[in-house]
Simulated assay, not measured.
Amino acid sequence: MNWAAFTTAAPELAVITERRFGAFRHHVLATLRRDGSPRTSGLEAGIRGGELWLGMMAGSLKALDLRRDPRFALQANPGEGTGMGGGDVRIAGRAYEVEEGEARDAYVKEVEPPQPFHLFRTELTEVVRTCVEDDTYLVVQVWRPGAPVRTLRRT
Rank of each mutant, 00 (worst) to 15 (best):
P114R: 03
S60Y: 01
T130I: 11
R68W: 09
E99I: 09
A106Y: 12
P148V: 12
V127L: 13
A5M: 04
L61M: 07
S60D: 00
L66D: 04
A14Y: 06
I47G: 07
G146L: 04
A10T: 02
F6I: 03
E133N: 07
G93Q: 03
E110T: 11
W3L: 13
E133R: 04
R150Y: 00
L66T: 14
Y107P: 13
N77G: 12
L138R: 14
E12G: 08
L29G: 12
A4F: 13
A63H: 02
S41A: 11
R20K: 12
E102L: 14
V149E: 09
W143H: 02
E112Y: 00
V98A: 14
P148G: 05
S37H: 04
V140P: 08
V128H: 01
A5R: 03
P114E: 04
L138T: 15
P148I: 14
G59D: 09
T130L: 07
A9H: 03
G83M: 05
L64D: 07
R34L: 10
A14E: 10
D35Y: 10
T125F: 06
D69T: 09
R68L: 14
L54Q: 01
D134F: 10
A92C: 08
V111C: 06
D88H: 06
I16F: 02
A95D: 05
S60E: 12
M56H: 02
R121E: 12
A10V: 12
E110L: 12
L32H: 05
C131W: 05
P78F: 01
A45S: 14
E123M: 10
P148E: 11
Q75A: 05
R90A: 02
T155D: 13
P114D: 08
A103R: 10
G87H: 00
A45E: 08
T130M: 11
D105M: 14
E133D: 02
E12I: 10
E112M: 07
E133S: 01
M57H: 13
V139Q: 13
G55I: 03
D88K: 04
V108A: 05
V140Q: 07
V28K: 06
S41F: 08
R33T: 12
R34Q: 09
R33C: 04
T8N: 15
P11R: 03
P114H: 10
P145E: 15
Q75M: 01
Y137T: 12
G59W: 07
E44G: 09
R153L: 08
R39T: 15
P116N: 01
T82I: 11
K62E: 00
S41M: 00
L13K: 04
D35Q: 11
R154L: 10
